[in-house]
Simulated scan of single mutants.
Amino acid sequence: MPETMLRSLVDDLASPDPAVRDDRAYAALARLVREGALGADARSWLAVEMLERLDHSRVEARAFAPLVLAALVSAGDFEPGWVEDVTRWYVAEPDLRGHDPVLGWVHAVAHGADFFGACGAAGVGDPAALLDALGLRLVAPTTSVWRDQEDDRLAYAIALVLTRDDVDEATAIGWLGHSRAMFAAGSPGPVPAEASNTMRTLRSLHVALDEQVLRDGEPVAVPHGEPVRREIASLLADVTPWFWRPRTACDGESSPLAEPAHPA
C-alpha cells in the first residue's frame, strides 16, 4: 500500500466526522491489518502512531487508537510496552461517552477493553497486568453511567483474559480487590457512577461464566471461572443484601425458602 494512502487513513482516523473516522478510516485500516496487506515496517509505524494518538487533544481520536492496536494484536503483532501505554490512557480517560449525536461512536471504555481482550485472546501480555487495568477502569471515579453496553464489552475482555492457561486462581481473582475496596468504602446515599458501572459489569461477567464464553464464535474454557464467579457473587451480595444471597453447600439444590407458597 502506498505510504501516502496509509498516512491519509491515519489522519482520517482523528476526524470528528464519524463517516470519515469510523466508516471509512477505521474500517479500512482494520481490513488492511486483518488481510496482511501491510508490511512489517508499515505495521510498526502504525503502532507508534496509535500510541502517540492516545495523547491527542480530542477524545474521538484517542478512543479509536486502541481499536487499531487490537487489530494489530489479533494479527500477530505485539510489544509489551503497548499494555503500559494503553493502561495509562485507559484508566485516566475522562470522557466516557458511548454514542454521541454529533461525533458518533466515541466508546473509549469499550474500545480500550477490546485491546485488552485481544491481548487475552492472543495470549500476549502479562495477564495480571491486563486484568488489573480493566479492574482499575471499573473503579476510576467518573460522572458517566455507561449506557451503550460498555459493561458487556469490559466483561468480555476480562473473560477473554481468564481463558488463558497462564492465569492461576490468585491472578484470576486478584483484580476484584479493586471492586471490593470501592464497595467497602461506600456510604449511604446516591450510588456513584463508577459503582453502578462496576455492579453491572460484574453481573454481566457472572452470567457469562455460568454459561459458555465465546472466542471467535466458539465456546472456550475458562479454567478458574467457577472461583471467579463465586467471588463476584460474594461482592454483589454485599451491595444488595436485601435482594439475594449466595447459595452455600448446606443449602442443597432446593431450600424450603425457595418452595412456592401453598394455599391454606
Score class of each variant (00 low, 15 high):
135 G>W: 05
57 S>V: 07
237 A>T: 06
225 G>Q: 05
128 A>L: 11
223 P>F: 10
8 S>Q: 14
74 S>L: 13
79 E>T: 07
237 A>Q: 11
202 L>T: 11
163 T>K: 04
22 D>H: 02
134 L>T: 03
185 A>H: 06
162 L>W: 05
31 R>C: 09
174 G>C: 12
216 D>P: 07
39 G>M: 01
20 V>D: 12
238 D>C: 13
140 A>R: 09
73 V>D: 06
105 W>M: 02
81 G>E: 08
91 V>L: 10
228 V>C: 10
96 L>P: 06
172 A>C: 12
3 E>I: 03
31 R>N: 08
187 S>T: 12
210 D>H: 15
15 S>N: 13
229 R>H: 14
81 G>A: 06
219 P>R: 11
236 L>N: 13
7 R>C: 09
154 L>H: 08
155 A>V: 02
226 E>I: 10
232 I>L: 09
235 L>M: 11
72 L>G: 01
261 A>E: 15
130 L>K: 11
184 A>Y: 10
3 E>N: 07
77 D>W: 01
151 D>A: 02
234 S>H: 14
141 P>T: 00
23 D>R: 10
84 E>Y: 07
108 A>C: 05
110 A>T: 01
85 D>A: 12
106 V>D: 03
244 W>Q: 13
80 P>C: 10
47 A>G: 10
44 S>T: 15
228 V>D: 10
191 V>P: 05
57 S>K: 08
242 W>D: 15
241 P>S: 08
2 P>Q: 07
114 D>T: 01
119 C>H: 07
12 D>Y: 07
25 A>S: 09
252 G>Y: 08
165 D>L: 07
40 A>T: 08
234 S>F: 12
120 G>N: 03
107 H>F: 04
52 E>R: 14
96 L>N: 00
107 H>S: 03
177 G>Q: 12
119 C>K: 06
54 L>P: 08
56 H>F: 06
192 P>Y: 04
84 E>D: 15
232 I>H: 11
229 R>T: 11
8 S>R: 10
67 L>Y: 01
27 A>C: 04
131 L>A: 12
10 V>N: 10
121 A>L: 13
69 L>Y: 06
36 G>L: 02
225 G>M: 05
101 P>W: 05
80 P>H: 14
195 A>I: 08
103 L>H: 04
171 T>W: 11
153 R>T: 05
231 E>N: 12
56 H>Y: 05
100 D>F: 07
247 R>E: 14
29 L>S: 05
8 S>V: 03
166 D>H: 07
58 R>Q: 09
188 P>A: 09
250 C>L: 15
167 V>N: 08
195 A>R: 10
95 D>S: 02
91 V>K: 00
172 A>T: 03
11 D>N: 13
151 D>V: 01
145 V>Y: 02
104 G>M: 00
211 E>C: 09
146 W>S: 00
45 W>V: 00
196 S>W: 13
